[in-house]
Amino acid sequence: MAETITARAMEKKKFADFTRAIVDNGYQLYGPAIEGREAIIAQIAEQADVSFDYRNFKMSPKDLFLSQSEVLCRFCRGEIVPDAAADDGRRVLLGIRPCDAKAISLMDKVFLQEPADSYYKRKRDNTVVISAVCSSPEDTCFCTSVGGSPASTEGSDILLTDLGESYLLEPVTPKGEDFLNRFSSLTRNASKNEVREKERIVEEAASRMQKMDLEGIAERFAKAFESDLWDTPSQRCLGCGICTYFCPTCHCFDVTDETLHENGRRLRTWDSCMYSLFTLHASGHNPRPSQRERTRQRFMHKFSYSVDNYGELFCVGCGRCIKHCPVNIDLREVIAP
């Protein structure tokens, strides 16, 4: 009942006013854009004609919280120098899919855990996440197998559903509630029919995905550590790391220094457990010497260690690793019971 009371609705013709109002209120607006034949998330202009008819963004929005490359500090002649004011701009992320929003909630567990990661936290605090219910999952999608749903609200502040004539806007967090209240003149109370229509869309989307029973996968993987389960994927794996770059929850990073004459900067950049250098000691010893150990590490981290440490699978079923793997390694075949 509570949902039907708090849910808002917006006529589609008012949506341009909404995006304009968001920008006028000083937010940077990130939303759907087309690049080539794919939808991406990018900063969009206020007048942009926004629609949510893509399946999912080519890349997850993880870069907006954990930048692919980011300056940790600057230095001169070996001593730290104050950085130019960090960009503290408030942002709205519009139209990410619930799987990617859930991935943000998983990243939170790592980066907001003490000691909190200052860079991540600042971006997270400054961002309102409006996710869009997924009505047309891809062949590679399996969110319902990993505890998600086409309308999962984890990691979202507001959940949006495209109902054809109108949008349903359901606040998820107090932050989302406050945000919607600021634009209350553009919305009205949602009708029961609109809420029912959303449920139908979600059910229909969920029914298109095959559901695997992954109950107990953490223990199953822990027991299979020395088994031949990893043989097939690791023999095929090229170690290119594309799965980790596309993955919305893979968050491993490297820290390196760059210098030019007397000035320099300390950077953090995405890294990948698929690379041999990732764990190579200065002594030459490598605790994960072959692709077998590295492939296993990625699966163990997502489906076993993360369950032990955070009580969560670190996979949201977005299927990007399956779609982009150059040797067609299908993660579902490895995790299937």
Binding site: F253, D271, Y305
Partner: peptide, 18 residues
């Protein structure tokens, strides 16, 4: 000992099991 970067359990490289 292990190769490390962040030192605070975030960069993901120095794990032994969980």
């Amino acid at each position: 000992e292990m190769r490390m970067k962040c030192g605070i359990g975030k960069c993901g490289r120095c794990n032994i099991g969980n």
